[in-house]
Nucleic acid binder design. Structure first.
Lengths: 259, 259
DNA sequence: TAGTGGTCTAGACCACTTC
DNA sequence: AAGTGGTCTAGACCACTAA
């Protein structure tokens, strides 16, 4: 009753927000046009447009240029816990190649899809520190964009010491390694079975590049994930960093209280 | 070279962003005024102002109404791992009251400070589910806003089954329990020593209320934390939820890869 | 009091979508 | 071709800050 009711633009936004909350404007539903709003509230089109901007930055509304403004569909939320790395996900699997498989096959669309690029790059500072190599020395970079139901959900880029993965399917650029845990499988085959993971998370607003890549609606934050994977000996075998569209994930961790 | 160089407003923002990145505009430094920019770039004041809005939503710049626009100071980042719950933080400590202590004493300011309110409230759905009580039944709510160096950094609200904490210092409204782990200490004293924690994290944009409470600059996301604390028996003794200013924290978790 | 950011109007043009 | 969001101008007023 005190905030949000000040300026005309905020007032209009508040009214629309209420309509959305009440379900009167359902997800996917079309909002009144800027010109409609301007007339109805007796304000300039600029001001009515401002209301839409406010709702966009709230993440409540998406606009399609030339078409209209729509109530944002809420995406299904995926819960991310340590189980996603579980051994049975990758230990039993054969290393599959997705070679000539049509990328829009039904299964691929449902299951999720990932594009992938592998290349040898000089290690930057965080990568070098994590992998214990010198800055600038060559490491394998495996960059992927993961898509689910047609929407890109996150990027993930892994780095490996070149000696660890040289000659494995991982670095063979032609077929590529399919899906989940392919990297872990390859490491295990080389006698470097992953055993422990440290994940660092932070949230921030996306860069312009990330907004394009992940097709983020304005006002949606991202979560940056940095992951260090070690063997039972404590040797680091993978360093990875990724960017997730915040609204599509919940992270969950369970741990014993330390002494 | 392709993004960000389109409209005049974006062009101005890009120039300023470059000045910030290069250090020519240092953190805390004052940006040119809207009227300056308008004249220099030969655009309307509205457009020059738009550039500032873009930088604000990027989180790069803060504005002080009537004073100017300033490059945002980057806050020291606190790393949050399971160690912050370590037993030695609360097991040995006496339960201190902060009674008549001046809230702006030097130590309090440095160490951080928290306001606190305890009350008996009806359990809402998530609280009831977590604590295993019926919706609407009375539970103790302990709400606090944590401040560090004069800036509010996060809120945290804990819920306890009323039988578990009845008659303890926790629910005594007059003195209040000081600082870290006071709640855990009290539970341990009642034979309900916390043993295991599950934390769920998600990132989103703040509500208007949160923006005020945490004094968030526009464009800064928050991380919502939900925490379930259990004894060694698996009994839930605390459910808590909090909202953190995203830019001031990194979360870190280490775990063994499950089977 | 002078300078600042914030917001508004009224009208214009553009780029895009839909039919 | 009609309707849409996006952006811009030029000028106005307000609320706030600082000297």
């Amino acid at each position: 009753m005190h905030i949000d009711s000040d300026s005309p633009a905020r007032r209009i936004a508040a009214d629309l927000r209420a309509d959305i909350a009440s379900g009167q404007l359902p997800p996917g539903g079309k909002l009144p046009s800027v010109r409609d709003l301007a007339e109805r509230y007796e304000v300039s089109r600029t001001t009515a447009g401002k209301a839409l901007i406010l709702l966009k930055t709230d993440g409540l509304v998406t606009t399609r240029h030339g078409s209209g403004a729509y109530v944002r569909e809420s995406h299904p939320i995926r819960r991310l816990g340590p189980e996603r790395y579980a051994r049975h996900h990758w230990e039993q699997t054969t290393v599959r190649a997705f070679a000539t498989e049509a990328p829009e096959s039904e299964a691929a669309q449902q299951q999720g899809h990932q594009t992938q690029e592998v290349s040898l790059v000089p290690a930057d500072e965080p990568v070098a520190t994590a992998l214990g190599v010198e800055i600038g020395s060559p490491v394998y970079e495996r960059a992927r964009v993961v898509t689910r139901e047609g929407n890109p959900t996150h990027t993930m880029t892994s780095y490996y010491r070149s000696a660890d993965v040289e000659g494995t399917p991982l670095v063979d650029p032609s077929p590529g390694i399919a899906g989940q845990g392919g990297g872990f499988r390859v490491l295990a085959d080389k006698g470097l079975a992953p055993h422990e993971i440290t994940e660092d998370l932070c949230a921030r607003m996306p860069t312009a590049e990330e907004t394009l890549l992940l097709d983020l609606p304005p006002g949606e934050p991202v979560v940056e994930l940095r992951r260090v994977t070690r063997t039972a000996d404590g040797q680091v075998v993978e360093y990875a960093r990724g960017v997730h569209a915040a609204s599509r994930f919940v992270w969950s961790y369970t741990f014993a209280i330390p002494d």
